[in-house]
Design a protein around this nucleic acid. Structure first.
Length: 152
DNA sequence: GCCAACGTTGGC
DNA sequence: GCCAACGTTGGC
């Protein structure tokens, strides 16, 4: 099993939204590296850290898991969607997504600031300078550490 | 709102 | 294939 971290802006779609709807197709990713992770590497049952970006206290807020493996992101050929890409079509889709399932919300947010101070997380992709990728792999050790910290 | 970092686009 | 211009991300 693999472990991941996915960013989302809580104003757009946050952990509470996922908790409410239980499952959600992760549409709108328009970055090739992130797409490749979803299309090629994310497998059903993989665990994902849910990260809130662009908010008061950015950080990891809970856990979700892959409930459906890659399928074409139909918003890419929907002219009315803000994710529309003229180079993508139903016949030849350029963008893919997975479906995620709610697992749990942490009792508290593990903030970005805290994470920066944690030795076991020093290699984490999200903490490296300039990394803006919305989907990154994390190691089991990193995943477990964050879960442990969240539990107090 | 600012701005550093990065990705994409498109002219050449 | 280079690279300037532009757009986006996301912390602060």
């Amino acid at each position: 099993m693999n472990y991941w971290l996915m960013k989302s802006e809580p104003d757009v779609f946050g952990i509470d939204d996922l908790k409410r709807v239980k499952k959600e197709p992760w549409d709108g990713v328009r970055n090739y590296q992130a797409r490749n992770y979803m299309r090629d590497e994310m497998k059903k049952g993989d665990k994902i850290l849910f990260y809130h970006s662009n908010t008061d206290v950015p950080g990891v807020v809970g856990i979700m898991e892959v409930s459906k493996e890659a399928f074409p992101d139909h918003t890419s050929w929907d002219k009315k969607s803000k994710y529309f890409d003229p180079k993508s079509s139903e016949e030849n889709p350029r963008w893919f997504m997975i479906e995620v399932k709610y697992v749990s919300k942490f009792p508290r947010t593990v903030s970005l600031q805290e994470m920066k101070d944690m030795k076991p997380l020093s290699e984490m992709k999200i903490l490296q300078k300039g990394n803006r990728l919305s989907i990154t792999p994390v190691t089991k050790a990193e995943f477990d550490h964050i879960v442990k910290v969240a539990a107090g």
